[in-house]
Simulated assay, not measured.
Amino acid sequence: MTASALTRPGERDRLPVKIGQIDWRFAALLCLVGGMGGAMMYSVAGGSWEPWAFNHVVRFGFCLLLMLGLSLVPLRWWFAASYPLYAVALLLLVAVEVAGDTRMGATRWLEIGPISFQPSEIMKIGVVLALARYYHGASAKDARFSWKLIYPVGIIAAPFLLVAHQPDLGTAMLIGLTGAAMMFIAGLDWKVIAAVAIPALVAIPGYVMFGMHGYQRDRVLTFLSPESDPSGTGYHITQSKIALGSGGLLGKGYGLGSQSQLEFLPEKQTDFVFAAVSEEFGFVGSFSIILCYLAIILIAFRIASLSHSHFGRMGAAGVTCTFALYVLINAAMVMGLAPVVGVPMPLLSYGGTVMLTVMIGFGLVMATRVHRYTELPKGHGLI
């Protein structure tokens, strides 16, 4: 029996005990990936802290402290905030439709004074918390198959449709796939999965040809045949593959990647930073990064499995699914195995909003570990 299990319930709320329950191995892995991201920002900028490396390191430091602070927040507070946060995020998505800021043909941002942000990023956390709270109060039968499945489907579908309309296919995919994964983890019947998956797969070609925006359709068709237009729509994937292959086993060396240094590799600091890693550090370096991501995912799922509350289990698992999808989609995109949808590699890519969302999510994961013995009321209060 562990020392934490022997600790009296009243003593578990003491700050030193809470800090001792934080998984510092997990935090160290996050620092390793975040630090590698800072190093790559320095490299792809030609050996300069500006314009990306300094900001990346400062943002990661702030987000790490925020994650550690959130890990001490009682799980019942997360529970109480679940539906209100989801409702606020949904209202903000509606506000984007009405008064959003349009950039590069997409309406995804809200501007409040000097602050500009994407409400869809808030919704990534909101939908996980709302689903976790719903399933905390749902019976196993309702989670498996019943008319009440309309509630979790509605929780997922509303933000999915609003984000897809912006349009932001990458974020919509993350919301939809995370929600589907949580429904599966909650015990959704295989018959229901098959009944939804088969028609969806059949409908994909029609959606690609008639439901997508023109540039989105071009991305999908380019993914199927990037060589058909290597200097146009296929440029991103072509240059990414060149960077991946040219790194070989051990890479060209830190700061010596020709594709990134000579500006051939597009979006080298964001969507395609993993290609830059592969070019400079080769298969060994890129595989090491993937192993770090795998360790983070496995530890997070382990933390989820140890929670005494279903809300904690579902919330931590949902956050982990979102993180895993980030890694999977970006890696597949960079290798030409998926269309380019603008999903960054978490903590490695440059971007403060995504980093903030990921680390807030990991704050929930750590809170689930620190407060894993917490029991929560069963009522979900949805109706």
Results as ranks from 00 to 15, higher is better:
Pro230Ile: 07
Pro230His: 08
Tyr235Gly: 08
His236Ser: 12
His236Ala: 12
Ile237Pro: 07
Ile237Lys: 10
Thr238Glu: 14
Ser240His: 13
Ser240Val: 12
Lys241Ser: 10
Lys241His: 12
Ile242Gln: 11
Ile242Cys: 11
Leu244Met: 07
Gly245Ser: 01
Gly245Val: 00
Ser246Gln: 13
Gly247Asp: 00
Gly247Thr: 01
Gly247Asn: 00
Gly248Tyr: 04
Gly248Gln: 04
Leu249Tyr: 08
Leu250Ser: 09
Gly251Asp: 01
Lys252Glu: 10
Lys252Ile: 04
Lys252Tyr: 07
Tyr254Arg: 05
Tyr254Gln: 02
Tyr254Glu: 05
Gly255Lys: 00
Gln259Cys: 06
Gln259His: 07
Ser260Asn: 09
Ser260Leu: 02
Ser260Val: 06
Gln261Asn: 07
Leu262Ile: 00
Glu263Gln: 07
Phe264His: 07
Phe264Lys: 05
Leu265Ile: 05
Pro266Gln: 06
Pro266Tyr: 05
Glu267Asp: 12
Glu267Gln: 13
Glu267Trp: 08
Lys268Cys: 11
Lys268Trp: 10
Gln269Ala: 14
Thr270Glu: 14
Thr270Ser: 15
Asp271Thr: 06
Asp271Ser: 06
Asp271His: 08
Phe272Arg: 05
Val273Cys: 03
Val273Arg: 02
Val273Ile: 11
Ala275Glu: 06
Ala276Met: 07
Ala276Cys: 07
Val277Ser: 08
Ser278Arg: 01
Ser278Asn: 00
Ser278Tyr: 01
Glu279Leu: 05
Glu280Arg: 01
Glu280Val: 01
Glu280Asp: 04
Phe281Met: 10
Phe281Lys: 06
Gly282Ala: 03
Gly282Thr: 01
Phe283Ile: 11
Val284Ser: 10
Val284Thr: 13
Ser286Pro: 08
Ser286Gly: 11
Phe287Ser: 15
Phe287Cys: 14
Ser288Ala: 15
Ser288Arg: 11
Ile289Gln: 13
Ile289Ser: 11
Ile290Met: 15
Ile290Thr: 14
Tyr293Asn: 06
Tyr293Gly: 03
Leu294Lys: 11
Leu294Trp: 14
Leu294Val: 15
Ala295Lys: 03
Ala295Asp: 02
Ala295Asn: 04
Ile296Asn: 05
Ile296Gln: 07
Leu298His: 00
Ile299Ala: 12
Ile299Arg: 15
Ile299Ser: 12
Ile299Lys: 15
Ala300Cys: 13
Ala300Arg: 09
Arg302Ile: 06
Arg302Glu: 12
Arg302Thr: 14
